[in-house]
Every structure is written in structure tokens, then in C-alpha cells.
């Protein structure tokens, strides 16, 4: 089964962790994740600058590791990201900001990527809210 995952919640929301555990379980079950699309406050999950307390789960790090290891297509909505100060090196230069905070394995792209993923996948699973 091909899954597309859309996440709307920031790293500190339980739904971000739920999405992560769902993706891990789907991959462990032999399913395919055609794309992860981070929208709205979920763009913070892709930030390199998030620092988690030592006794808490580091959700952004877990996402990053998962996308790297499984070579997933991790897409962050560019409009949602820029307005929240999530920029890659290219955007930081374009808007004359001092530094970027979005690195590989994440890609900045548009909402069309969510639409395309929904068309490609058998199921679109959305995670958001609490």
C-alpha cells in the first residue's frame, strides 16, 4: 500500500509523534511512503535549530533520521516555512537573512506536492491537532 502523509502540527504536539510512529509502523509493515508533506506549523519539525530537553523526545531529530535512513521524500511547504522563519541556505540568501535553518534531507516546495502525493498514493493520512 502506498501512503502519503500530511502533517499539520508542530513538534511539541502529540500528533507529530503519532505521525512519526505511524510512518515507522507502515515502513516496518512493508508499505511505501510516497511523500511526507509538512504544512502549517509542522514546518517546525524540519528546523535544524530545535533544541529538545534532554529528558524529552527529540521529534525533529527522529524525523530527520527517519527521512535520511529510509530515503523518504520529505517536503516542507515553502510558503508556510518562510512565514515561520524556516529557510534553507538558498532562501536565506534570497531574502538577505543571516542564516538558514533547513538542511538536507528536507526540500522546500509548494502545495502542489501535496496534491500530487494524494493522487499518487492509495491513502492520504493527515495528522494534526492535539
Amino acid at each position: 500500500m502506498k501512503f502519503a502523509i500530511a502533517l499539520f502540527a508542530p513538534p511539541h504536539a502529540p500528533s507529530s509523534r503519532r505521525a512519526l510512529r505511524f510512518v515507522q509502523a507502515a515502513l516496518a509493515g512493508g508499505h511505501q511512503i510516497v511523500r511526507l508533506f509538512f504544512y502549517q506549523d509542522a514546518v517546525h519539525n524540519a528546523s535544524s535549530n530545535v533544541v529538545s530537553a534532554q529528558d524529552e523526545l527529540d521529534i525533529p531529530a527522529e524525523w530527520r533520521e527517519l527521512v535520511r535512513q529510509q530515503q523518504l521524500d520529505g517536503v516542507v511547504c515553502i510558503a508556510a516555512a518562510l512565514r515561520r522563519g524556516i529557510l534553507n541556505e538558498q532562501e536565506a540568501q534570497r531574502y538577505q537573512r543571516s542564516a538558514g535553518n533547513l538542511d538536507a534531507p528536507w526540500d522546500l516546495s509548494g502545495l502542489g506536492q501535496l496534491h500530487e502525493a494524494a493522487q499518487t498514493a492509495d491513502r492520504l493520512i493527515c495528522f494534526g491537532g492535539p
Binding site: M1, A25, G29, R123, I125, C126, F127, G129
Partner: peptide
């Protein structure tokens, strides 16, 4: 979670 994944396959659509 594996059960959640299985449910997502069993139903035609998942509406959050």
C-alpha cells in the same frame, strides 16, 4: 500502531 496502519488499509479512506 501496526493495527492503525492495518485499519488505514482496511478502510477505503481515512478522514482525520
Amino acid at each position: 500502531y501496526p493495527g492503525f496502519v492495518e485499519l488505514s488499509c482496511r478502510f477505503d479512506k481515512v478522514n482525520s
